[in-house]
Design a protein around this nucleic acid. Structure first.
Length: 684
DNA sequence: GATCCTCGAGTTCT
DNA sequence: CTCGAGGATC
């Protein structure tokens, strides 16, 4: 057989008969794997396959020196890992820009035509799998590594798990393997396999998976490949990464044909189409087939087919300009509103919430959905008892889309805004010109007190780790904490007596409290929770006044001098600080030992970014959002939440959303993390 | 007075 | 992320 040379150089061995037999068996099994897992068209019964497999195993056991890593018997091996190693991708695994509406697609096609200066664009189109993006590395035809996408720059080494997936060849089907080939694709579980898997889970009394995607993700992230092996994972390739020694390829579709020739599974629904009409027809076509496809998809991907045209178009920040993912509309599900209750926020805001009969939508089970305010409830006309359509808007937050009026039961109850606070009984007051009703109880209201404490302890404020909702509930309900200052009076005796709190966790809380005492003036002002004073305003105040005393002594006139402080904000601050109770609490907090460097804000505001406004979007590869913000502020720059003409730079990371789109529309300078870091003075 | 820009506040689930 | 509303600007 022509391919015998691939198995290495053991020609003169005395076991050459076995060796030949082994080579034949491996080839046969690979062939059957290919037919079964890639073509989905088995040609032999399982029993025949098993027979060959056992035969190969026996021969290999008798001749262990002939075992090679690409043998079908070697798909499982190794012991469980402690953790996955981190892998830096040779070539970044980019994400695609998304389009939800037809006009976004029109804009995409227009950009392409204008960018290339021609009208006849050919697109390679394919379904967008709802699975996990991975990359496979083949060196000289052998699978040597597999990794998850991670943040696009570094991922996790899941090689031994990927080896268990029979659809993934451990050796490429070719006599002239490329020196290096990175294959990009998606690991997923077919719908029919998912149902079977869940039936098995149920029979064993194990937890059911919410959907094929979660099941695939969970299976791939198993530290023990022996578990992964039992999960029905499959794979589809959709692109190339780094490559050396591959044939010349002119188009994306030719690249896919090349991969198919190497016996990598590629999607059968892929096609090439001409122009905008072509992609719209394809979208329609796949949308119609969606439910009968064997796998879950969440949209369709369009890529400019010509690789030279792709090059010409290039990239914007992290996403290629020559491709776009056209997502299907968010899936909606029907459920019943069991009740409409209200929540009390930190400022006393009364928010109606729909308690829903649990419903599975967009990958999670939803039980609550905010209705924002009374007007919103009116507008949507939601009654308790109604059947409503629910979706997860903007990726995460559940939203009641509409009411199915025909299904309204006779005993459905309209929402009535309570007149008194359900927590403290104080009057609820709604200002004529405001959309939001508020509990007038102030800090007398336990709900508001709890929220005030949580805000005080939150990461961007005093950053007291461990002081979360559960603990605050207990502390307030047991009347152990009345004011913010009381939390610094907590001691071991009190804490260790609480539920779910032994000495160890109590000590952690005490340490966190101690740690939080060293802070900054801006954080402290923000932590107080003054109405209309958020992080940005707190920073402005700290910078302008320099000391707490100066802020406390300021009159309205003085407060108005602060940038971005107008009459309403000035009044909030003045009222808050004039309140004797608040003065006492602040004094007690200082007494407890809270301190900071006075005037810290005034220095070092001159840097390379002085006067510049930046906006962060998406996930950066190595910096957290807060870290990036700190770096920018240290260089004198300002980080803002929204993109406008006044924005100087937009720093975009993975999964960048609408802010990136807007930045592109406005033609702003877009940086990635590396470019940002390059602008900053070398870190010390 | 209108418009644009930014900030504050609230929110779900894993 | 999104809405609403406060502040700045013209």
């Amino acid at each position: 057989m022509a391919q015998a040379g691939l198995f290495g150089d053991a020609a003169a061995s005395p076991v050459s008969n076995d060796e030949k037999k082994i080579a034949t068996l491996r080839e046969q099994i690979r062939q059957y794997d290919y037919q079964y897992y890639v073509l989905d068209a088995p040609t032999v019964p399982d029993s025949e396959y098993d027979k060959l497999y056992r035969e190969l195993q026996a021969l290999e056991n008798a001749n262990p020196q002939l075992i090679t890593t690409d043998s079908p018997t070697q798909r499982v091996g190794g012991s469980p890992l402690k953790a996955f190693a981190s892998i830096t991708h040779r070539q970044a695994m980019l994400s695609l820009n998304n389009a939800f509406e037809e006009d976004e697609l029109l804009a995409f096609d227009k950009r392409i035509r204008e960018g290339l200066g021609r009208e006849d664009i050919e697109y390679a189109v394919e379904p967008k799998f709802d699975g996990l993006a991975i990359t496979l590395t083949y060196e000289n035809g052998l699978l040597t590594q597999g990794a998850t996408r991670g943040d696009g720059y570094t991922g996790e080494d899941v090689t031994s798990n990927l080896r268990t997936i029979r659809a993934i060849p451990t050796r490429l089907h070719t006599t002239t393997p490329p020196k290096l080939l990175e294959v990009r694709g998606e690991v997923l579980i077919l719908k029919r396999d998912f149902e079977k898997l869940n039936r098995e889970q149920e029979a064993r009394g194990d937890k059911l998976f919410a959907n094929p995607r979660n099941a695939a993700a969970g299976s791939l992230r198993q530290l023990d490949p022996n578990i992964t092996r039992t999960r029905p994972l499959t794979f589809f390739a959709y692109g190339l990464g780094a490559a050396e020694g591959i044939p010349m390829l002119a188009t994306h579709s030719a690249a896919m044909d090349y991969l198919a020739g190497l016996r990598l599974p590629v999607c059968r629904e892929r096609a090439t189409v001409k122009g905008l009409q072509g992609i719209l027809d394809y979208y329609q076509n796949i949308g119609n087939k969606r439910t009968v496809l064997p796998f879950d998809i969440d949209g369709v991907v369009y890529k400019v087919n010509s690789l030279s045209q792709q090059n010409e178009l290039g990239f914007v920040s992290r996403a290629p300009r020559w491709a776009i993912a056209h997502k299907f509309p968010a899936q909606e599900a029907l459920t019943v509103v069991e009740a409409i209750e209200v929540q009390v926020g930190r400022t006393g805001a009364i928010t109606p919430v729909a308690r829903l009969k649990p419903v599975f939508v967009g990958g999670v089970t939803v039980t609550n959905a905010t209705l924002h305010n009374e007007d919103e409830v009116r507008r949507k006309d939601v009654h308790a008892g109604d059947t409503v359509s629910v979706r997860r808007a903007g990726d995460v937050i559940p939203e009641v889309v509409s009411v199915v009026l025909e299904k309204r039961p006779a005993d459905a109850r309209a929402f009535v805004m309570p007149t008194t606070c359900p927590i403290c009984g104080s009057h609820i007051i709604k200002q004529e010109d405001e959309a939001i009703a508020r509990c007038s109880g102030g800090l007398f209201c336990p709900a508001q007190r709890k929220q005030a404490i949580l805000h005080f302890a939150s990461r961007r404020a005093m950053d007291i780790e461990g002081l979360g909702e559960k603990l605050v509930d207990q502390l307030v309900d047991a009347e152990l904490v009345h004011t913010l200052a009381d939390i610094y009076r907590l001691d071991m005796g009190t804490l260790a007596n609480l539920d779910r709190m032994a000495e160890k966790s109590a000590q952690n809380i005490l340490d966190a409290l101690e740690h939080s005492k060293k802070t900054t003036l801006a954080r402290f002002i923000y932590a107080l929770g003054i109405r209309n004073v958020g992080e940005a305003t707190a920073k402005d105040l700290a910078r302008h006044f320099g000391s707490l005393q100066a802020v406390q002594q300021a009159d309205i006139e003085a407060l108005l001098q602060v940038p971005d402080v107008g009459p309403i904000v000035a009044d909030s601050i003045f009222q808050f600080l004039g309140e004797p109770h608040n003065r006492e609490v602040i004094a007690a907090l200082m007494q407890a030992g809270i301190h900071w460097q006075e005037n810290a804000g005034k220095a070092n505001t001159i840097g390379v970014l002085t006067g510049k406004t930046l906006v962060l979007t998406g996930t950066l590869p190595s910096l957290s959002r807060d870290q990036a913000k700190e770096l920018i502020e240290a260089a004198g720059g300002k980080v803002s939440g929204s993109v406008s003409k006044k924005t100087d730079f937009v720093v975009a990371g993975a999964e960048a959303g609408s802010k990136l789109d807007k930045a592109q529309e406005l033609g702003l300078v877009i940086l990635d993390e590396a470019a940002l870091l390059a602008m900053l003075p070398a870190a010390t």
